[in-house]
């Protein structure tokens, strides 16, 4: 199948899926008990019945669920994702403010976990029963078993309190704001703990994956042939074996993009990282339906885009897929 047709088909599937995401999320959110008026009353320390009724009319909560859904879908079709109930600002603007922070976090964590995970896996696969390999296995299991919020809190205590060398909250120094290169370095320092927390779980997964696949690849006939041809070891491992090891890693990385977003919700909350994950968490508690629905929608778009990109990268790495060979 040619590449363009493939991408078009993928995009059409994605559009159908996005509509399903909107409708399902809308119904699920409205099924949860409580509504935004109650949250606001709670936050204000109480409110009169008149104020509560006015809030419900303002947000259209006095209409039937079907009417609310139709109104919402027709607005989304015109690109209008509405106003946040909580901040009284256009939702798209809110997301645009938060998206860069989440992308910094998720992409840096992805990069860290793929690079370090693959490296650890490859090195330990060369001597599967060696001390280094055993150590990587134990660390991987520990990293995989530890919940993200626990890892986050431990790193926060370690580098924030016991050995206070790294900032523990926010994205930049807001007391004496910096500009230019100094700002970039400041953001990078603030990114270390959140990004490492999110990456740790995934490093464990990638190192396991890379190790197993590398062990298989190194035992394969083509590696024996390469060695027999007298190729240097770094070419055998780096070019022949690694290329085959990378295929499952890229596939898993694409699939796990959604999980990274889910992990970002916890990490952003622990480290006050001003991204979409924290906004989604707060929006659930506030029953801020428009904000929540829009974030879920755009997250779905990003995950789908990641899957399409994975598919393309997959084709680049593996010539058999490119040529349509079995």
């Amino acid at each position: 199948m040619n590449l363009v047709a493939h991408v078009i088909r993928q995009a059409a599937n994605a559009a159908g899926l996005l509509l399903a995401v909107l409708v399902l999320n809308f119904c699920l959110i409205h099924l949860t008990p409580g509504d935004p008026a109650q949250v606001m009353a709670g936050e204000m320390g109480g409110a009169s019945p008149e104020v509560m009724a006015a809030l419900r009319v303002k947000y259209g909560l006095d209409h039937s669920l079907a009417e609310q859904l139709l109104t919402y879908l027709s607005k989304v079709a015109t690109g209008d994702f509405g106003y946040s109930y909580y901040f009284n600002e256009p939702v798209v603007g809110l997301i645009a403010q938060r998206l860069p922070a989440t992308l910094y976090l998720v992409l840096s964590a992805l990069l860290l976990s793929v690079l370090i995970g693959t490296l650890l896996g490859v090195v330990s696969a060369r001597r599967p029963n060696g001390l280094f390999s055993q150590a990587v296995t134990v660390l991987s299991l520990a990293g995989y078993a530890a919940p993200i919020f626990w890892t986050g809190l431990m790193l926060l205590l370690l580098f924030g309190s016991v050995w206070p060398v790294l900032p523990v909250s926010g994205m930049a120094d807001v007391v004496t704001p910096k500009t230019g290169l100094a700002y970039a370095i400041d953001v990078a320092r603030h990114l270390v703990l959140p990004s490492s927390t999110l990456a740790l779980v995934f490093i464990a997964q990638y190192s396991r994956l890379a190790r197993v696949n590398m062990i298989d690849a190194l035992a394969a006939d083509y590696v024996r042939t390469a060695r027999a041809k007298g190729l240097p070891e770094y070419v055998v491992v780096g070019k022949h074996a690694l290329r085959n090891t990378l295929i499952p890693i890229v596939t898993v990385a694409g699939l796990q993009f959604g999980q990274l977003f889910a992990g970002a919700v916890l990490v952003e909350t622990i480290f006050s990282w001003p991204g979409m994950g924290r906004l989604v968490f707060e929006s659930i508690l506030r029953r801020d339906y428009p904000t929540l629905l829009a974030i879920l929608f755009f997250s779905a778009v990003l995950v789908m885009a990641a899957n399409i990109v994975t598919d393309l990268v997959y084709r680049l790495i593996d010539p058999r897929i490119r040529s349509g060979a079995p």
Binding site: L156, L157, G160, S161, P167, V168, S169, I270, S272, R278
Partner: peptide, 20 residues
């Protein structure tokens, strides 16, 4: 006066101890 919104109470506590 700078008011920082730190969503996690533990992080806020550590920030006070550190003098941030």
């Amino acid at each position: 006066i700078v008011v920082r919104i730190i969503s996690d109470p533990n992080a806020a506590l550590v920030s006070l101890e550190r003098g941030d």
